[in-house]
């Protein structure tokens, strides 16, 4: 299963809601404002690094670029993907659930 999260974890709880329920081994794509969850040096970095050990976590690069985060340090274990790869993920990982 592929979980989609699109809100900043500093503003909304959708990432937290997803992580609480997504079984180990499932995939999570951070896009739109959720890309802020993929950054190093935030108060959430430790928790996210931990989450990346139990889940496959991806971050959408065009949403990083749009936000001036092109060269930003992404957490270890979080994989940057473009839109083509986003499409591949939806095909490869089974049912898609959006956490809204």
């Amino acid at each position: 299963m592929l979980h989609l999260v699109n809100k900043s974890p500093f503003e909304r709880n959708t990432l937290e809601a997803c992580l609480k329920r997504a079984p180990k081994g499932s995939s999570i794509l951070l896009y739109e404002d959720a890309v802020y969850a993929a950054l190093q040096g935030t108060t959430l970095s430790a928790a996210m690094t931990q989450a990346a050990k139990t889940h496959d976590i991806y971050v959408l690069t065009p949403d990083l670029t749009a936000r001036g985060l092109d060269g930003a340090s992404i957490l270890e274990g979080v994989r940057p993907v473009d839109y083509d790869r986003f499409v591949d993920l939806t095909a490869d990982k089974g049912t898609v659930q959006s956490w809204l």
Binding site: Y31, F86, A91
Partner: peptide
Amino acid sequence: HQASDSAYQFCKHALQKGH
């Protein structure tokens, strides 16, 4: 919201890939 933009980008890329 960005939702419509994201949906558009997703559709465009999926269609270009032959989906």
